[in-house]
Structure formats: structure tokens, C-alpha cells
Design a protein around this nucleic acid. Structure first.
Length: 262
DNA sequence: ATGCCGGGTACGACCCGA
């Protein structure tokens, strides 16, 4: 089973790229961040025509997440618990069946948090506290669980081109990384780092020739419960899509697992 | 380089992203 995360930076602007890529790659599950669309305007028909079930959790203008799946959804959860007044659409989770049981796939768009002096940074840290509590509960289920998406976190020096330039940014500073490590220490495995020690960026800024100069960062992750990590076969960063016409600034990151569909 | 590009809203010019 192939499960992919991709921050597509606007579903409307990216639809041709997504459709072409889905036809080529045919992943079992594709989770999207930054759909920047309300649920009613999500282009369902074109994607359903390729054989996908769709669940969205959108909002007007910004953020928004979605799950596309060849498998039927057994359950869907929208929104991160812990603050009923939070209007930002940043989490959607689906539960699916495989031949040995269930698989829980939780798609997140973790807040960026910049600028650090603004209210956006404490929002990020608070969101991570809420995520920690949520994941702690999920792991108690002791089932295959995949937490994936745009984490807006650079885990280590190797995951950015110029660590000294990034240090202090909301994506790479002590408070953010301490919470990320605490999350990992609940028992989540970073799928890419479990399979390679090589540098593997997932984002290159549109500006300043970042792609041409390979000035990238790794912030899109698949984090696995032990029950999911035991089934991990391969991780692939679909770097080629960054060079397509009208690309997103992020690329797709795929985990291949040996779950068999019923 | 505290926004150079690119997408959003909405139709002029800001907001937002990493």
C-alpha cells in the first residue's frame, strides 16, 4: 500500500498537476495540505473519476486539508481537539481496513509559527501541545497509525541547506524542536530517517532560485506508530514534481507499506 | 533578501506562506 503526503499550495491552481500525477502514480492514499478551498468548491468530480474517495476539511482562503483514497473510509475525523474556538482547518483523519485489521491515517498541516514575535508562534506551540495529547490517545489504540503531512519542522541540521541561517526560525528553534522530540518520544518513527541517512528535502521556496540552487528543507514527514513502522518497506521523495509546470513549492513524499487490501 | 515568488480574495492591493 502506497501512502503519500503533499502540500499542494492551492487545489484550484494545482488541479492539472494533481490529476496528471495521480494518473501516473496511482497511490492508494494521497493526503493534501493547503487546499485553500471550502469543502463545497473542492473539485471532487475530476478526482473521483480517477477512482478516489474524497474527504475534505477546508476553510475559506487558507489552510485546509483533504484525504483522497482508493479504499473506502470506515471513519473520518475533522479538526484537532482541545480548542473549540480554533477556526483553522489543519487536521483530518481517516480509518481504513486492510486484510489484518485497520489503518489510521492522520493528515496534519502544522502551523508555521513565523514571525516568532507574533501571536503565530505561541499558536504553533499550543497546537503542538494539543497534537501531543491527541497522538498520545491514538497510540494507546496500539494499531497501525500514520501521522503525516506538512509539520513545518526541520528535524535536524541535515534537513536544511544552511542550518545557521535557519536557526531561530519558528521551523528550527529550541521551543519547536523540543515539542517535536517530545512527540517523537511518544513512540513515533520518522519513516524517511528510518530508511536513509541521506539529505532529502521536501520544500524549495519559489523565490531567489531556491530550487535551482538546491536551497531546500525537509519539513514534510511520515511519522509511524511501531505497528505501522513494522510494515514500512520504502520511502520515496517525488522530487521530480518540483520541476513540473506550475509546481507546488512542496513535493510529494511516499511511504510504501506491506498492508494488503481486503 | 523581515517576501525576491506565487496563491488567495476580489478586481486594487493586501494577506499569507517558510
Amino acid at each position: 500500500m502506497r501512502i503519500v503526503t503533499w502540500n499542494i499550495n492551492g487545489i484550484k491552481a494545482r488541479l492539472p498537476v494533481i490529476l496528471t500525477w495521480l494518473e501516473q502514480q496511482k497511490p492508494d492514499i494521497l493526503v493534501l495540505q493547503e487546499i485553500k478551498s471550502v469543502d463545497e468548491n473542492f473539485p471532487r468530480e475530476a478526482i473521483e473519476a480517477l477512482g478516489y474517495n474524497i474527504e475534505t476539511h477546508g476553510q475559506k482562503g487558507f489552510n485546509g486539508v483533504a484525504i483522497l483514497s482508493r479504499l473506502p473510509f470506515d471513519e473520518v475525523t475533522c479538526g484537532l481537539p482541545g480548542d473549540d474556538d480554533d477556526p483553522q482547518a489543519r487536521l483530518i483523519e481517516g480509518v481504513f481496513s486492510h486484510s489484518q485489521g485497520s489503518l489510521r491515517v492522520c493528515n496534519i498541516y502544522l502551523p508555521n509559527g513565523n514571525p516568532v514575535e507574533s501571536e503565530k508562534f505561541p499558536y504553533k506551540l499550543n497546537w503542538m501541545d494539543r497534537l501531543h495529547a491527541f497522538v498520545e490517545e491514538r497510540l494507546q489504540l496500539e494499531e497501525p497509525f500514520i501521522l503525516l503531512g506538512d509539520f513545518n519542522l526541520i528535524p535536524e541540521e541535515i534537513d536544511c541547506h544552511a542550518p545557521k541561517d535557519w536557526w531561530g526560525d519558528a521551523l528550527y528553534r529550541p521551543e519547536s524542536l523540543a515539542k517535536f522530540r517530545a512527540l517523537c518520544n511518544l513512540g513515533l518513527v520518522d519513516a524517511l530517517r528510518a530508511t536513509t541517512h541521506e539529505q532529502a528535502y521536501t520544500f524549495w521556496d519559489f523565490q531567489a532560485g531556491a530550487w535551482r540552487r538546491n536551497n531546500g528543507i525537509r519539513i514534510d514527514h511520515l511519522m509511524l506508530s511501531s505497528q505501522a513502522a513494522d510494515r514500512l518497506e520504502e520511502v520515496k521523495v517525488h522530487k521530480d514534481v518540483r520541476a513540473w509546470e506550475k509546481p507546488s513549492d512542496h513535493v510529494a513524499v511516499e511511504g510504501r507499506f506491506d498492508f494488503q487490501t481486503p
